[in-house]
C-alpha cells in the first residue's frame, strides 16, 4: 500500500489583488515523480514555492506526511506557524532552483555540509563524508573543494542538487533546473534527476523539457491559469490530451 506524502487542498495564493493560484488540489504518494507543465505565468513556480513556504498563501492547506505546512488554525483563526517551526518544516523538502543559488563563498563540499551541520546537527567529519557521498553520486567528487565560480553551470546545478538531496528530504522540488543551462549541459543534470527517480525519490518537477517529463514521470500535471487543467499518466496526456488547452500547449512546446 503506497502512502500519501503530499496533500494539497484548495490552495489559494494572491499577489496583492491578483489571484495566481485559484484552488489547487493535488495528492501525491510516496515515490511518485510528478512533472508540472504549463505555459508561462500559469502558477507552476508559485505552487512549488508554497510547498516549502518560500511564499505565503492565503487559503487552503498543504500537508506533508500528515503535517500541516506553514499555518495552523487555533480557535478558528488561521495563523502562520513560528519561524523556527517553519524552518524545521522546510527541511522536510529539498529544492533546486533555476539559478542554482549556490553559496559563492563556500566550496562545493561546504555548500553541502552547511545544512547537515547547522540543521541536521552532524559533526564536521560526518557531514564531510555525507557530502563526499553525494558529490560522488552527482559525479563531482574531484571538484568538491572548488568554489561555485570555478564550476560550469551544469556542475553548479549538480552541486545544488547534491546540497538539497544530502539533507535527506522526504520530497524534492525542482523548478526548471535546466532552463539556465547551455544546451550541451542540460543532459548531465537530467541524468542525475533520472537516477534519483530510479532510486524511488519522491519528486515534483516543474519543467519545459517535455521529452524528459514524458520519460521520468509517473504522472503529469498541466497547470492552466492558476488551476490544474488536466492530469494523468504521461503516455495518455502527451498522446491523447483531453482538453483543448493542453493540446494547444503541447503543439506550441518542443515535444514531438
Amino acid at each position: 500500500m503506497t502512502q500519501t506524502l503530499l496533500e494539497i487542498r484548495d490552495l489559494h495564493k494572491r499577489y496583492g489583488a491578483v489571484e495566481v493560484l485559484k484552488g489547487v488540489d493535488c495528492t501525491m504518494a510516496q515515490g511518485e515523480v510528478i512533472s508540472i507543465i504549463g505555459s508561462s505565468g500559469s502558477g507552476k513556480t508559485t505552487m512549488l514555492r508554497c510547498i516549502n513556504m518560500l511564499e505565503e498563501f492565503q487559503g487552503g492547506s498543504i500537508r506533508i506526511d500528515g503535517q500541516e505546512i506553514g499555518y495552523e488554525t487555533v480557535g478558528g483563526v488561521r495563523r502562520r506557524k513560528k519561524e523556527k517551526e517553519i524552518a524545521r518544516q522546510r527541511a522536510m523538502t529539498g529544492m533546486a532552483f533555476q539559478q542554482f543559488n549556490l553559496f559563492p563563498h563556500m566550496t562545493a563540499a561546504r555548500n553541502v555540509m552547511l545544512g547537515l551541520i547547522k540543521v541536521r546537527g552532524m559533526g564536521r567529519d560526518e557531514a564531510r563524508s555525507v557530502a563526499e557521498k553525494w558529490l560522488d553520486r552527482v559525479g563531482l567528487l574531484s571538484r568538491m573543494d572548488h568554489y561555485p565560480g570555478q564550476l560550469s553551470g551544469g556542475q553548479q546545478q549538480r552541486v545544488a542538487i547534491a546540497r538539497a538531496i544530502a539533507m535527506n528530504p522526504k520530497l524534492m522540488l525542482f523548478d526548471e533546473v535546466t532552463s539556465a543551462l547551455d544546451p550541451e549541459l542540460v543532459n548531465e543534470v537530467l541524468q542525475v534527476i533520472k537516477g534519483l527517480a530510479e532510486d524511488g525519490m519522491s519528486m515534483l518537477l516543474v519543467t519545459h523539457e517535455m521529452r524528459f517529463a514524458y520519460e521520468v514521470s509517473t504522472r503529469v500535471i498541466f497547470m492552466n491559469q492558476g488551476r490544474i487543467g488536466e492530469e494523468g499518466n504521461p503516455r495518455e496526456m502527451f498522446v491523447k490530451p483531453q482538453t483543448k488547452r493542453l493540446a494547444e500547449f503541447l503543439k506550441s512546446s518542443s515535444f514531438n
Partner: peptide, 20 residues
C-alpha cells in the same frame, strides 16, 4: 536566491545571516 536557498535547506534567519 541566496536567502531562498538558505531557507530551503532549513536554516533560520539568524543562521542565514551568520553563514550566508
Amino acid at each position: 536566491g541566496q536567502t531562498e536557498a538558505a531557507k530551503a535547506i532549513g536554516l533560520t534567519f539568524p543562521q542565514t545571516f551568520a553563514y550566508v
